[in-house]
Design a protein around this nucleic acid. Structure first.
Lengths: 200, 200
DNA sequence: ACCTGAACACCGTTCAAGT
DNA sequence: ACCTGAACACCGTTCAAGT
């Protein structure tokens, strides 16, 4: 193989390539240990090249998290596309989708949660994260309109369900709690919470 | 040579000093950006000195997290010391204590949660974390014995409450969700979950 | 416009040597 | 036993220069 002849000077799609490579590395090294220099090396590019597309490491992490929230939202929105399914079904499906994403993208989810609270998080990231949490809130509001859920601020009512699902993921280790898969536990927990939301 | 001096070089008990300095730095820089060299500098000690007491940076973080779980457990155990208080009261107090600790030690809590899942986390850390989660489980078991909670595995029943409290903390930003203090929300959420645990 | 390569100021970790 | 100081192999970031 001839040195230097393997790649054109202008990579052409470096931004996308860096993101792809970074996410691939995420699950093996964790987001803490992502190295811009190592990513550049893996892509056969100088260590300063990514700078053209990401102002700094934070910007790359932000873009990764943003992309994650986008995919998570798409996945969740898809399972509640059918507006005619029962409220309980929709909420369970949303929980399952969230948990499914979290367990299959552990490091990415970790990054997403961490960056969402960062002072310097982009407005885009905040907006994409809010869209995810908006889905269950919307369904609670819908259920209220149908008289299936006690009256009150839909956001505050949905919070028990959202927090529980989020908490299960945080507490869990490699998708399990005390040996039981989170996929199983999320059903139990959500059913109990749905019961607690019923008009008395 | 018999020494009257309590400190061999610079510090008598470097281990304790490093831990203290590290926790002080935690809330200003976040656990991600803790630097052993900077801690050493602040303590007026060589950058290699802490190594005598902490095998590596992970060991220091592990010790910090361990210490955190110990204090959290003490705080939670104290509020349920009175074995005669009602089940609901005890669970609410446990939730408040957990949230109170988390909101007043944001960076430390972040570290504790992260390290608990780490492959290389010490057995001591795991045990101390488990003790914390054992407290609400114990109270669910107690309530079951009194016929106040539906039958079933106490751990799985307590999980909705534990997960919800944990989730509120993770979702929250600087102790608030949508502008509402987590201290307020945790009461609402726990009351709803307690309702869901009642025998039907 | 996009990328390189040297330079700078930091890290964590190791280790022979000092006290 | 406890700590130092130099050394090593990494970082992220900056910037003049190349294509």
């Amino acid at each position: 193989m001839k040195k230097g002849s393997a790649r054109p000077y202008h990579h052409g799609n470096l931004r996308a390539e860096v993101l792809r490579q970074a996410e691939a590395a995420l699950d093996t090294v964790g987001y803490q240990n992502l190295s811009l220099r190592e990513l550049s090396r893996a892509l056969g590019v100088s260590h300063a090249a990514p700078r053209r597309h990401f102002a700094d490491k934070e910007a790359l992490l932000d873009a990764l998290a943003c992309n994650g929230y986008e995919r998570l939202h798409d996945k969740m929105a898809a399972v509640v596309k059918d507006q005619k399914q029962p409220f309980e079904t929709a909420l369970l499906k949303l929980g399952r989708a969230y948990v499914g994403f979290a367990t299959s993208h552990v490091a990415l989810m970790d990054l997403m949660l961490t960056r969402k609270h960062d002072e310097q998080a982009s407005a885009e990231l905040r907006q994409k994260a809010a869209a995810v949490y908006g889905l269950p809130i919307e369904w609670v509001a819908r259920a209220q309109a149908a008289g299936l859920v006690v009256p009150g601020d839909p956001m505050r009512l949905a919070l028990a369900a959202i927090a529980a699902v989020q908490g299960l993921i945080v507490i869990s280790n490699k998708g399990k709690i005390a040996g039981i898969p989170v996929e199983v536990l999320v059903e139990e927990v959500l059913e109990r919470i749905i019961f607690g939301l019923r008009p008395r």
